[in-house]
Structures are given as structure tokens and as C-alpha cells.
Simulated scan of single mutants.
Amino acid sequence: MLDSKAIFNIKTHEEFKSFALKVFKFQFENNRVYRSFCDLLNIHPSEVTCIKDIPFLPIQFFKSHVVISSKHHVEKTFISSGTTHTKTSKHYVTDLELYRQSFERTFERFYGNIKDYVILAVLPSYLEREGSSLIYMVDHLIKQSNQPESGFYLNNLSQLKDTLLALDARNTRVLLIGVSFALLDLAEHYPLSLKHVIIMETGGMKGRRKELIRNDLHKILKNGFGVNTIHSEYGMTELLSQAYSHGDGIFTCPPWMQVLVRDPEDALTIQKNGVVGGINVIDLANINSCAFIATQDLGRVFSNGTFEIIGRFDHADIRGCNLMVL
């Protein structure tokens, strides 16, 4: 049996590779959906000695199948946001403590002690979006910050503006985190010039506003908040880890997460660094579901392991990788 918490001890590429291959074997043997997918590709752990040869499960499977590798009780089901006309993804989590450790350790790695920040969220509150993994994470970080001003402000932008100005005047370290459309609303209604606030967008217009390319979005937000950089969070319902960008849309993963890029025309071929293709994610915190996911995002990976997201596939299906989705 694999020790899931051991992922947080990973320090080198070789340690990551070793653990990833063990997780692949474990999920091949314990995840019925993933095993069926591997069987259809005629890929067996005995033949896989390299990370690039591990099959990546199309992310749509989280909409059409129960993707789980554990026999333990499901503690929480995270559900993606969607309209009445779209199927939502469901991520069955059997170890919430693993998720909490993943996002707490990642935050501390990139930003330091959570207690040093006031967390202001322009996101739906926990009660409004109980099934959101992002809301769960931010709600937990707000409680961990233990600051009286920390909280959700989506429906009260005027109060949020006043709070931001008061905290900035006191030289308080603040993290303002929110979905793109809400940050744009705030920046347009209440232009500010902030000196001690980190602005972090989590993506998502959710049909509320016209989609913008990252550079245009960040330019508007930088002008609206008077800051030099916009930070970003890369995460999704189907992952229990996050990557963060400190600016320019270049993301860095924690040591137990890695991004690769696949050929858009041949889903089983991994591209060289710098070449644009489909984003594949290895998230070892997903040990109890599926750690190897082919997303619908397009991007590129750089030689130092950082990556950027350029857009999404035009169509819902990922070509060459939808053997069992229908």
C-alpha cells in the first residue's frame, strides 16, 4: 500500500518519477475505469518505465464515469460549475486531509505563512458553491489566516473597496483572489492604486463577460488596481493540487505535480519543451482517483518545468483520446 503523504517528501526528478510509476501501477490495479482505458490502449505497467509512456485519462471521464482508486468512504464530492445544458465533472475524494495538506503546503511554498495575509475573496461563498474545490480551499485559507477582515466579498464590492484601501494604508499584506469577471467588475467600478496587495485571478468568465486572452485581462487588471503584476492560480475540480504564477502567466508546480504537453493530433505522443499542445497533468495528490489527466487546455512547457496556458481546444472532445467517453 502506498503512503499518500509521502508525496510531500519528493525533492528530485528521480523521486517524482519513481513515485509516479508506483502510483500508475497502483491505479492500474485499483481503478476500474483507468484500467479499462489502459487495456483499450494495450498498455501494461510491466512495459512502462518512463513517465511519458504512462496513459493520461481524458478529463471528460470525470463527467461520464466514477473515477476512483480507493475503497475508502468518499468524504467529499467536488463538482465543477456548469450550466443546465452541460454535464458537470465529479471528483470523489476519499481523503480530504490529503487535499488540505496539498493546498496548504503549496501556498506556503509559494507565498509563505498563510497567517501573514488577509485573504479577500471575490468568489461565491462556501454555502453558495458547496461543491467547489476552489471555494473549499479558499474558505479553509480564510479560516487559517485568522484575520478579522478575511472573507468572501463577491456580492459587496463597495465594502471590499473600502477594506482594500484601509488594509493597504496600514501596510497589511493582502491576497485578493477571485474569478476573472469579478475582479474586472471591481477594477472597473472602483479603480485603485494598491501597494501591498497581491491580485490573483483564478480564471473563469463563466458566461458573465466576453472571454479575454490572458495578456489583455492582466493589462486591464494591472491598470485597474495600480499593480505591476497579476498572479494566477491553475487548478480544477479534477485536481487536488494547484500551480501558481507570480506574473506573466508562467506557472510553477509543487514537487508532487508535473505538466507535460501532448501532440494535439496524436494524444499518446509527448511534445518537446516549448512546443504548443494539449496539457497533461500528473498530480500525485490524486492518488485515490486518477493522477494522470489529459486536460482540454492548450499550452507549452519550458525546460525548467514551468508552463503557460494559451487557450483551450475548440471542441469538447480531445481527438485520439476519447475511447470510452461516449
Rank of each mutant, 00 (worst) to 15 (best):
I287Q: 08
K76N: 02
I142E: 00
L160Y: 00
E130R: 14
L284C: 07
V66I: 11
P254M: 09
V122K: 02
A291M: 02
I54Y: 05
V275H: 14
R173K: 15
Y99V: 07
I59G: 08
C321D: 11
F107Q: 06
M257H: 05
I51D: 03
N322Y: 10
A6M: 11
D3W: 02
E108C: 01
T237H: 04
P254N: 08
Q258L: 12
S80D: 03
S69K: 09
V33A: 15
N304Y: 03
R35V: 00
F56P: 06
A243Q: 01
G207E: 13
I59F: 02
E15A: 13
V67H: 03
V227F: 02
K87E: 06
E14L: 14
T163N: 02
R129M: 09
P264R: 14
S180C: 03
T106Q: 01
A294T: 14
R100T: 06
S289V: 13
G112P: 01
L157M: 04
L192M: 15
L217T: 13
R312N: 10
S102T: 03
R312P: 01
F37P: 11
F78T: 00
K71I: 08
S4R: 13
I309P: 01
Q144P: 00
N322S: 15
H91R: 14
F251D: 11
F225K: 10
D297P: 10
L217S: 06
R32Y: 11
E233G: 11
E75V: 06
E97G: 10
E128L: 02
S193T: 13
R173T: 00
P45T: 05
T77C: 14
L175M: 15
H44G: 00
H44R: 14
I250C: 05
N156V: 08
T88V: 13
L154C: 05
D314P: 07
D283L: 10
S193L: 01
L41A: 07
T49Y: 06
P124W: 05
N155R: 15
A316H: 13
D297T: 07
T163Q: 04
I114C: 00
G299N: 04
V48G: 07
